Simulated assay, not measured.
Amino acid sequence: MRFFSERLKQERVKLGLAASKMAAIGGVSINTQFRYENGERTPRIQYLMAVAVRGVDVFYLLTGRRVLLCADSLDSHEADVLMAYRTMPEEDQAALHRIATACATQMGSD
């Protein structure tokens, strides 16, 4: 679980939390927090649930992949676009990605 421990520390630092504060949020001792971050122990689900509420990306901790949006944060139009994108052939997805990137880049330079 070496990579998990590295990601845990990375998330804590990203949130600007001291190890003692992260430990308190997770309901563990500072020593336990250090053991998690050193890969000596793995946290229980209660810890993960508690730190997730504070903003830790638990999916990232477990998989190494970031979740950019929660499904319930999308409005109906965004959800429709995402569903349409997911059902498109791969080449159409690539074209839509190029268009969206071009539009976003253009907006950023205005």
Rank of each mutant, 00 (worst) to 15 (best):
Y36C: 06
L48Q: 01
V67W: 08
C103Y: 13
R12L: 04
V53Q: 09
M83I: 14
G27C: 04
Y36S: 03
I45Q: 10
D110Y: 13
Y47F: 12
L8W: 01
A100W: 13
R7I: 03
Y36F: 07
D92G: 11
A18E: 14
F4K: 02
L69N: 07
Y47G: 00
F3T: 14
V51C: 00
G55H: 00
T105Y: 15
R66S: 04
M1H: 09
D110S: 14
E90K: 13
Y60S: 02
V81D: 08
G108C: 07
R2E: 12
T87S: 10
G39W: 02
R44H: 08
M1I: 06
G16Q: 04
D80H: 05
S73L: 07
E6F: 07
V58R: 01
Q10S: 14
L82G: 00
Q33P: 01
N38H: 10
P43T: 03
V53L: 05
F3H: 10
S5R: 02
N31Y: 12
S29H: 02
I30M: 12
M22D: 05
R98N: 15
E91R: 13
Y85M: 05
A95N: 13
G64H: 06
L8R: 01
E78Q: 10
G26A: 01
L69R: 09
P89A: 12
K9R: 13
K21N: 07
G64C: 04
Q93T: 05
M88L: 08
F34E: 08
R54N: 03
A71F: 10
Y85R: 06
A102Y: 14
L74Y: 01
N31D: 15
Y36I: 06
N31H: 11
M1R: 10
P89M: 10
C103H: 12
F3V: 11
R86F: 09
K9Q: 09
E90W: 08
R35G: 06
R86I: 05
L8H: 00
H77P: 05
S5H: 00
T32S: 06
P89D: 13
D110T: 15
R7F: 04
H77L: 11
G26K: 03
R86Q: 08
L48S: 03
Q93D: 06
T42P: 08
S20V: 12
G64Y: 04
L74N: 02
I30R: 15
E90C: 11
V53G: 01
L15Q: 00
E40D: 11
L17S: 06
E11M: 00
E90T: 12
L48D: 02
L74E: 02
M107S: 15
N31T: 12
A100V: 14
Q93W: 05
R41A: 14
R65I: 10
E78I: 03
H97R: 12
M1K: 11
M22Q: 09
L96R: 08
G26R: 01
Y36G: 03
M49E: 14
R12G: 01
F59L: 07
R2L: 14
R41V: 07
R86D: 06
K9E: 07
F59A: 07
S76D: 07
L96H: 10
S5E: 00
L69Y: 15
R35V: 04
E78C: 03
A23S: 03
L61W: 03
D110P: 15
A102E: 14
M107N: 14
L96D: 08
A18R: 09
A71G: 09
M88I: 02
L69A: 11
G16E: 01
G108I: 13
L68V: 08
M88A: 04
M49H: 12
R54W: 05
